[in-house]
Amino acid sequence: MNPQHHLDPATLVSFASGALGEAMVAVAATHLVGCRRCRALLRDADDIGGRLLAQQQPDRNRQGRFEVLRKAMSERLDGVPLETSPQPKPENVLSVVPEDHLPEPLHRYFGTTYSGLRWRWVAPGVRLIRADNARAGSLIMLKIAPGKSLPTHGHGGTELTQVLRGAYDDRLGHFAPGDMADLDSEVEHQPVTIPGVPCVCVAALEAPLRFRGWLARKLQPLVGL
């Protein structure tokens, strides 16, 4: 899996700084698990945080309190042994998963396997599951029949969509498993799934989608976004 479409670096800044909502974190992490390039950029984003931390100016008025804390720390050291870091094992590593396993960042919301997913019919050729335990934003999985055209829609806020299975095309390109569509409110698009296999995606939405047309009007209340 060699992703062709990546997270916006601006999204990685939010991820590193802890500013990304829970639903977005789940989808961004799903991409990061399969993308070394974005992980490398995320390390750079962490470095910015490290640099900002190093630049902090200590409060000169707290000397007395600092001495108390320092003494307390010095006394705690004895009771704390060196922790040996566990060697990461391939089978524990996120990207190495059998066919039926969902990416690990999604387990908490959708369970562990594709075969265990309980799809809800929302429109011809469109099935959906909505995670109800993501605290910020909406987190959904979509399964779209092969060769199907979704209604044109724009986004009230940022939308992250990661393709898990199948593929689709829109005016931004071809999106296959591992690819991320990191879209903001200016973008309107009309994805068309490829023939042969259904397209399964996971998407996080910061704000409601704006569908247009009859299917949209039908989809909107059902999706409940």
Partner: peptide
């Protein structure tokens, strides 16, 4: 800081500066 004492063995300076490690 106590974690730093505890997990010092897993710090790798080729991977990140100490500031970045503590930031995380």
């Amino acid at each position: 800081l106590l974690r730093l004492w505890q997990r010092a063995g897993s710090y790798d300076n080729a991977r990140s500066s100490l500031g970045t490690w503590l930031f995380r």
